[in-house]
C-alpha cells in the first residue's frame, strides 16, 4: 500500500512537468506570433510615417529607391500568380480528391497518396527551377518566344498550382470523406450513378469544407516565395499580361532582403509594410475559412 501511494505521487510529478512543458510549448507559439505582429507593426509604422496609406494603396509603381510606393505593382503580381495557381490547383486537386474518395480502389489509393506526399515534400526552390527550366520553355514553345518572357507570372503561377495540388486534394478529400456514407447510399438507392452521386450529392454536401480548403490553398499560394522569386520576375511591373515578368510581394521581400539594405532606410521598412499586408491577407483568408468550416460542422453535428 505504502508503495502504491509513493508511486502515485511520483506519477503526478511527471504529469505536472509534462503539463507545464506542454503549456510552455503552447505559450511559445503564441508569443512568437505576438512578437511577429509587434515587430512587423513597429517597422511598418516607421514606413507609414513616411509614406501615406493613400499612396501605398493606390499607387501602381513600386520602386522604393526612387520614392514610388504603390503596392499594387506587387499586389497585382501576387494576385496574378495566385489566380493562375488556383486555376491549376482547383480543378486538378478537386478531381484527385473526388477520385480518391469516391472512385479509387484500395490499391490505387495506396499508390497515389504517397506520390502526392512526395509532391508536397519537394523543396519549393526546386519547383522554382522546374518553372524556369521546364514550364517557361514549354509555355514559350506553345505561345511563341516573342510572346512569353523568360520570367513570367504564368509559369510561376502554374507551378505554384502544382505545388498546392496535394494540399487542395488532401483537404478536399477530408471534406468529401466526412460526408456521411448514408448520403451516398441514399443517392445510389435512388438509382444514381457513381458520377451523379459524387458530383451532385457528395460534392455539394462537402462544399463548405472544400471552400475552406480552397481558401487555405489561396493563402498558401499568396505566401509562396521561392517559386516566384526564381521564376516570376525580379522587377516590379504592373501588368495583367501573365506572360510578362512581374514581381510579387513575397518575391520582392526575398530579393530586397537578400541584398544589403541599410537598416533604417525606407526600402528596409517597406519590407515590413509588405509583410504586414501579406499577414493581413492571409489572416483574413484564414478567418474566412474557419468561419466556413464552423458553419459546415453545424450542418452535420
Amino acid at each position: 500500500m505504502q508503495n502504491s501511494i509513493d508511486l502515485r505521487k511520483k506519477r503526478r510529478w511527471g504529469e505536472t512537468l509534462i503539463q507545464a512543458s506542454l503549456f510552455i510549448a503552447g505559450a511559445f507559439s503564441i508569443l512568437t506570433t505576438v512578437g511577429i505582429v509587434y515587430e512587423l507593426g513597429k517597422e511598418a509604422m516607421n514606413f507609414f510615417a513616411q509614406v501615406s496609406l493613400w499612396e501605398y494603396f493606390t499607387g501602381a509603381d513600386w520602386n522604393p529607391q526612387i520614392d514610388q510606393f504603390g503596392i499594387w505593382a506587387l499586389l497585382n503580381a501576387t494576385l496574378m500568380t495566385t489566380f493562375i495557381a488556383m486555376l491549376v490547383a482547383l480543378p486538378i486537386g478537386l478531381s484527385i480528391s473526388l477520385y480518391l474518395s469516391e472512385y479509387a480502389s484500395h490499391r490505387a489509393r495506396r499508390t497515389l497518396k504517397p506520390i502526392l506526399e512526395v509532391l508536397a515534400g519537394i523543396p519549393t526552390v526546386v519547383y522554382g527551377y522546374f518553372a524556369l527550366t521546364f514550364m517557361t520553355p514549354l509555355l514559350r514553345g506553345i505561345f511563341g518566344r516573342d510572346v512569353v518572357d523568360i520570367y513570367n507570372t504564368a509559369s510561376a503561377g502554374i507551378v505554384i498550382g502544382i505545388l498546392i495540388i496535394p494540399m487542395v486534394s488532401s483537404m478536399s478529400e477530408d471534406a468529401l470523406s466526412a460526408v456521411p456514407r448514408a448520403l451516398r447510399a441514399a443517392a445510389y438507392g435512388l438509382g444514381a450513378t457513381k458520377l451523379e452521386t459524387a458530383v451532385k450529392v457528395v460534392l455539394p454536401a462537402a462544399i463548405s469544407g472544400i471552400m475552406a480548403a480552397f481558401i487555405v490553398a489561396i493563402s498558401r499560394a499568396i505566401g509562396e516565395t521561392m517559386i516566384v522569386a526564381v521564376a516570376a520576375g525580379a522587377g516590379s511591373n504592373f501588368t495583367f499580361n501573365p506572360f510578362e515578368a512581374a514581381e510579387t510581394m513575397t518575391g520582392h521581400i526575398v530579393r530586397i532582403s537578400g541584398g544589403d539594405l541599410s537598416y533604417d532606410s525606407i526600402d528596409y521598412n517597406s519590407i515590413f509594410a509588405i509583410g504586414l499586408t501579406l499577414f493581413f491577407m492571409t489572416l483574413s483568408l484564414n478567418v474566412i475559412s474557419q468561419r466556413i468550416v464552423r458553419k459546415y460542422r453545424e450542418v452535420y453535428e
Binding site: 509603381d61 520602386n63 529607391q65 526612387i66 514610388q68 524556369l132 518566344r145 516573342d146 518572357d149 523568360i150 520570367y151 520576375g233 525580379a234 522587377g235 511591373n237 510578362e244 515578368a245 530579393r255 537578400g258 541584398g259
Partner: peptide, 26 residues
C-alpha cells in the same frame, strides 16, 4: 538611379546567372 529604376520591363537580380538566363531568353 531614378531613370533606370523607372524603366519598364526591368528585371533586377543580385544573382548574375539570373540575368544571363534572362538575356539569353530573347
Amino acid at each position: 538611379e531614378a531613370p533606370i529604376l523607372g524603366a519598364s520591363n526591368t528585371q533586377l537580380s543580385e544573382d548574375d546567372n539570373v540575368l544571363v538566363q534572362g538575356i539569353t531568353g530573347s
